[in-house]
Write a protein that binds this DNA or RNA. Structure first.
Length: 477
RNA sequence: GGCGCGUUCGUCGAGCGGCCUAGGACACCACCCUCUCAAGGUGGAGAUCACGGGUUCGAAUCCCGUAUGCGCUACCA
């Protein structure tokens, strides 16, 4: 039975790297019909970020990474860690340390200055009971440190990287229990993974260096360690570990930027895992079905936003029109100019959406792409009407067009196209030039959805109004 | 400084001894389609597989060394 967990700390909002780790754990659990557990590692009271837990939960839900147990909160399990520490203390596998943070800091500085490997100098490792009593009498609250072996090696097996060996003399006596009574990551992690019967620890590469400490702790407590797999990290464009400095870090921001959860899921799965040498578009079920640890890469990956944009566009285009409209609606409501009346006319929106579905890479682009359908007056530089022709020619073209369009019996694409093509011939203008001119007058842009479809949806009166406005604007210059 | 892990086109990734004169995708360029923009189609450019030694009939693939990047080195996770 496979049991895995995602164990974020609420010291910030989850970014792509965090969520990719969650995703691999989730997929691995689902592939093996196992259990996926959510555990909040809130043992650092000083770095707690307000709302972080909510954002973690929101992010997981949005991506459909549902958990079977939890969320557990380590802050509610302090007794468990204290018991484990007591047990180690009793068996003299750990000891109380009374060194002040100031002394530790000074020690560290000195070590760095002398180019010595920084690490606790074990001053409190051999205190007599009398010395301990003196410190206690002074009211110093100690931390509990692990008694790392002074010699020997600690080997362990990593599912992705094979055998890894650490020399014990490179490990210092790390803290298990802080003076505020909270455990450090190392202790809490081991206690919980054991108690929650975690079978596989899939976590980011940055933890690899800590693993020998964890293995030593399992041994000291007489517990069987789980299997480890250290996942490649996701780097920022500067190839450094992803952090707040890299801009949009929170997953919820990707939601707000108009990415689809299914697209992000697919994209993230491919950041470090692959099915074969060509398949890139994979539905969630296919990923679950084919997922395997063997196919996880060992190399850190740089997040490539452009490729995400492309993939999001593919998913956007694969949506049914109703679904696309349903998903775009909140973005329209949110981003269309304030002057546009809310709530939006659903029927009108439904007629517009087919014109932009294949043009949007994110849902957030939809309002920009369709804004001219909603606003009353267009504002654009009249120069845009004069890129190919002189003022007089454009004015003539506009006037003739207005007159003919007024009398057009049927306001639909075939009729509009037929009349405009005839008009172009009459005016002795190339269709490209003439249509381009109309496009600017009708949409205020040089790049827009197909002209006649746009005109049909917009309607006769609004179109005529815009053509007249263009004529007047131009005549006034 | 110490320790650990990586190193295949700009980026993601295929490759796990001969199928590789290294395949795919994004981005880029050209052409086709076309009322613009997209979408789609076709083609192109882009990697001395970090470098140097081995092992082998044969190495991107195995071994060693070097370089280099990243990570860890807290009473942070």
């Amino acid at each position: 039975m496979v049991r895995v967990r995602f164990a974020p700390s609420p010291t910030g909002y989850p970014h792509l790297g965090n969520i990719r780790t969650a995703l691999f754990n989730w997929v691995f659990a689902r592939h093996n019909n196992g259990t996926f557990i959510l555990r909040i590692e809130d043992t650092d009271v000083t770095r707690l970020v307000e709302g972080a837990v909510e954002t973690i939960v929101d992010s997981l839900r949005w991506l459909g990474l549902d958990w079977d147990e939890g969320p557990y909160f380590q802050s509610q399990r302090l007794e468990l860690y204290r018991e484990a520490a007591d047990q180690l203390l009793k068996r003299e596998l750990a000891y109380r340390c009374y060194c002040s943070p100031q002394r530790l800091e000074a020690m560290r500085q000195e070590q760095i200055r002398r180019k010595q490997p920084p690490g606790y100098d074990r001053r409190c490792r051999q205190l007599t009971s009398r010395q301990r009593a003196d410190y206690e009498a002074e009211g110093i609250v100690p931390v509990v440190r692990f008694k790392s072996p002074l010699e020997g090696q600690t080997p362990f097996h990593d599912l992705l990287r094979g055998e890894i060996v650490f020399e014990n003399n490179t490990l210092d006596d790390f803290v298990l229990l802080k003076s505020d009574g909270y455990p450090t990551y190392h202790l809490a992690n081991i206690v919980d993974d054991h108690l929650m019967e975690i079978t596989h620890v899939l976590r980011a590469d940055e933890w690899l260096s800590s693993t020998p400490r964890h293995v030593l702790l399992y041994q000291a407590l007489g517990w069987q360690p789980p299997q480890f797999a250290h996942l490649p990290m996701i780097l920022g464009p500067d190839r450094a570990k992803l952090s707040k400095r890299h801009g949009a870090t929170s997953i919820t921001e990707y939601r707000d930027m108009g990415y689809l959860p299914e697209a992000l899921f697919n994209f993230l799965a491919l950041l470090g895992w692959s099915l074969d040498d060509k398949t890139e578009l994979l539905a969630r079920e296919e990923i679950v079905k084919h997922f395997s640890l063997e196919r996880i890469s060992r190399t850190a990956a740089v997040f490539n936003r452009e490729k995400l944009d492309w993939m999001n566009g593919v998913y956007l285009r694969s949506l049914s029109m109703e679904e696309f409209t349903r998903r775009a609606m909140p973005f329209l409501e949110r981003d269309l100019p304030a002057e546009v009346k809310r709530p939006l006319d659903g029927g009108y929106v439904r007629r517009i959406m087919p014109l932009v579905q294949e043009r949007a890479r994110t849902l957030a682009e939809v309002p920009q792409l369709t804004q001219f359908f909603f606003v009353d007056g267009l504002s654009y530089d009249t120069e845009m009407l004069l890129t190919k022709l002189g003022q007089a020619e454009v004015l003539t073209a506009l006037r003739v067009t207005i007159a003919r369009l007024k009398e057009l019996p049927n306001w639909d694409v075939p009729s509009l196209e037929a009349i405009c093509r005839a008009l172009a011939e009459e005016l002795e203008l190339k269709t490209g030039v003439f249509f381009g001119l109309l496009r600017v007058a009708v949409t205020g842009r040089t790049a827009a959805p197909p002209l006649f479809q746009t005109m049909e949806v917009l309607g006769r009166e609004p179109c005529l109004k815009r053509l007249k406005a263009a004529e007047q604007k131009l005549a006034a210059t």
